[in-house]
Design a binder for these strands. Structure first.
Length: 301
DNA sequence: TAGCAGGAAAATC
DNA sequence: GATTTTCCTGCT
């Protein structure tokens, strides 16, 4: 089906899809195409409208508006954040970049794979597991694959998952999939919690074992920000750590600042991660996640 | 809590 | 062509 979605507040499709939140979008000519809800979704931005083509009635204008978070009062959010001079430059440069509200399972699984990998590689790994374990569908003489269900990944062999180039991530992905598939973890339940509770629950242990092996603070924060509407979440990856060291030394704190100057490579212990995250949330406020996203794309450029 | 392994591919030198 | 880096987590 074809439809259009009016844009009555600032939105930039390109910046949004290239900002490292999502890994299954590709630019084909003037169109961006991705697979969502098990179907193909093509989007093209014209000045103040999104032109969309989808392979399913479930992917309609309501879905599109929800997915791209077009209801966000982006002018208000960015206006507030831009009172911070350092952020203002990034916001001006990437104005219209939105956080995306993506599928919870796909988001969690994607960021489990994202550890110690760069974006091209993350895309490759995800593409490979989709091809191998995702439901196949055909459209206009092309073959596509849905994102694999937790069940299909939980029953896969770790060695076969590893063949998708996952390396040590294979066992993590399989275990996380199993926890979700057998109901130990209800990923839909997090949206109803507060940020702190959701985070605690995600990182919790049962009988001395982590319920979600492979999900640490960073992955938890990405999941909560990109799929659970928790805009105060402030994921800290190497780029953000660097950006903080350069532009926000006070958030990093004197100890880490020194260590960073000495070591170059900043590995954060859980307590250090929490401290920085707390300081960043205190500094940037309830839309810290938006601040993080603009800092991220800006730092990478 | 600090140090290290993990695996493979991309980016950089 | 070798080395470093990569949206990190878990174990000791």
């Amino acid at each position: 089906m074809e439809f259009t979605v009016p844009l009555d507040s600032p939105f930039n499709l390109e910046y949004t899809l290239e900002s490292g939140q999502v890994f299954r979008w590709e630019k084909k000519g003037n169109w961006w195409q991705g697979v969502v809800r098990g179907t193909l979704f093509k989007v093209m931005q014209e000045a103040d409208v999104l032109r969309c083509v989808s392979g399913s009635a479930a992917v309609d204008s309501v879905f599109a508006s929800n997915y791209f978070r077009l209801d966000d009062d982006i002018e208000l959010i960015l206006g507030q954040l831009a009172r911070d001079g350092k952020l203002a430059r990034a916001i001006e440069r990437f104005y219209g970049l939105h956080l995306v509200r993506q599928d919870k399972w796909e988001c969690l699984a994607s960021f489990v794979l994202a550890t110690n990998a760069n974006i091209p590689r993350i895309r490759k790994m995800i593409g490979a597991i989709c091809e191998k374990y995702g439901r196949e569908f055909r459209l206009e003489d092309e073959t596509y694959h849905a994102f694999p269900t937790p069940e299909s990944l939980a029953t896969a062999r770790t060695s076969e998952l590893a063949e998708c180039g996952l390396g040590y991530r294979a066992s993590f992905l399989r275990k996380v999939s199993a926890s979700v598939a057998d109901g130990k973890v209800d990923i839909e339940s997090f949206a109803g919690m507060g940020y702190e509770e959701a985070r605690r629950t995600l990182l919790s242990e049962l009988f001395g074992e982590k319920v979600l092996l492979g999900v640490g603070p960073k992955v938890a924060d990405c999941f909560l920000l990109y799929s659970c509407d928790m805009d105060e979440s402030f994921p800290i990856d190497v780029w953000i750590a660097r950006a903080l060291a350069v532009d926000y030394p006070r958030i990093l704190g004197p100890r880490l600042r020194k260590r960073f100057a000495r070591e170059k490579k900043l590995k954060l212990a859980p307590t250090e991660y929490s401290a920085i995250s707390r300081a960043a949330r205190a500094h940037f406020g309830k839309h810290a996640g938006y601040a993080q996203q603009y800092l991220y794309v800006s730092a990478r450029e």
